[in-house]
């Protein structure tokens, strides 16, 4: 048998077919059929008319959006300061932000839970805040690293050129550094926003009983409602697709790397 580079792709092809393509077909099938296996759009209309599912969608969006904004507000200054400083201990500081990722996720959230209980007395008082805090803690490195990477790769002479042409420090930052670090911001956002929509484990562990998209799908499947659950999964997929397309077109102009993770 002739061995070619294509042969190396076979395992991945098989994997892709079995675990991505086939489940997708199943997902589509269930989403657009009813219990009798007849084609229907009922699941779709149900999703967008049921106040419960819509409420969950908006709650998820609210959590994800808040988490993303908080992450960005913390991550950008940190990444900028780290990338532009001449600190010798720079890599150590980056490690401090990254190492939590090496510790088991549930352990970290449990620790956070204990700290928050200590401060708040009862976690039930601030479920939304707690969930955002948990998600921020979990996702912050995914925001810092891509932004850090884009800023650190920026040609320093570009900011010098801006200064040379008459911009003060603030002007050079706003007109050159910020726009050129956007690819990193965009990939940071997509790495935080999308998982934050569905990461219901954080909510569960922090005793926030409100459903988000992930837990909603889980609850449908737990009740053997494969059709409704599949449709919710499909809607989520649609949102992700639209989001990815939007961020991609933004990145097209200046794809200067950024995604390290």
């Amino acid at each position: 048998m002739k061995f070619s580079r294509k042969t190396l792709g076979i395992p991945y092809g098989v994997f892709l077919t079995l675990f991505v393509v086939a489940p997708m077909i199943v997902l589509f099938y269930y989403a657009f059929t009813n219990g009798q296996g007849v084609f229907t759009l009922r699941n779709l209309t149900d999703f967008f008319t049921d106040p419960n599912t819509l409420g969950t969608l908006f709650y998820s969006l609210a959590i994800a959006l808040t988490t993303t904004v908080v992450c960005l507000l913390i991550a950008y200054p940190v990444a900028y300061i780290l990338a532009t400083s001449k600190l010798k201990a720079k890599s150590v500081i980056i490690m401090i932000f990254v190492t939590p990722m090496w510790i088991n996720f549930s352990l970290r959230i449990t620790a956070l839970k204990e700290i928050l209980t200590l401060i708040e007395g009862n976690l039930a008082y601030y479920p939304f805040l707690n969930s955002v805090l948990g998600m921020t803690y979990d996702f912050l490195p995914f925001m810092i690293l891509p932004i850090y990477n884009t800023i650190v790769k920026l040609d320093h002479s570009l900011t010098e050129a801006a200064r040379d042409l008459g911009a003060n420090e603030r002007g050079a930052f706003l007109k050159v550094t910020v726009p050129l670090s956007l690819p990193g911001v965009v990939s940071g956002i997509s790495m935080v926003f999308l998982p934050a929509m569905t990461n219901y484990v954080v909510l569960d562990m922090l005793y926030n009983s409100t459903y988000i998209m992930g837990s909603l799908i889980g609850s449908y499947f737990a009740a053997y409602n494969w059709h409704g659950g599949s449709m919710i999964a499909l809607v989520l997929l649609g949102i992700i697709c639209v989001f990815t397309l939007l961020t991609d077109s933004g990145e097209d102009d200046a794809r200067t790397g950024g995604a390290l993770l």
Binding site: S157, L158, A162, D164, L165, G171, D253
Partner: peptide, 29 residues
């Protein structure tokens, strides 16, 4: 600081702003 000197520089590797077109690059100052 450089922005207060009536001096301009042509940089070794040009340092053109990649996110701007030619007009905006030249019009920057």
């Amino acid at each position: 600081p450089p922005n207060e000197r009536p001096i301009n520089t042509v940089f070794q590797r040009y340092a053109l702003f990649p996110h701007m077109n030619i007009f905006d690059n030249i019009a920057f100052g």
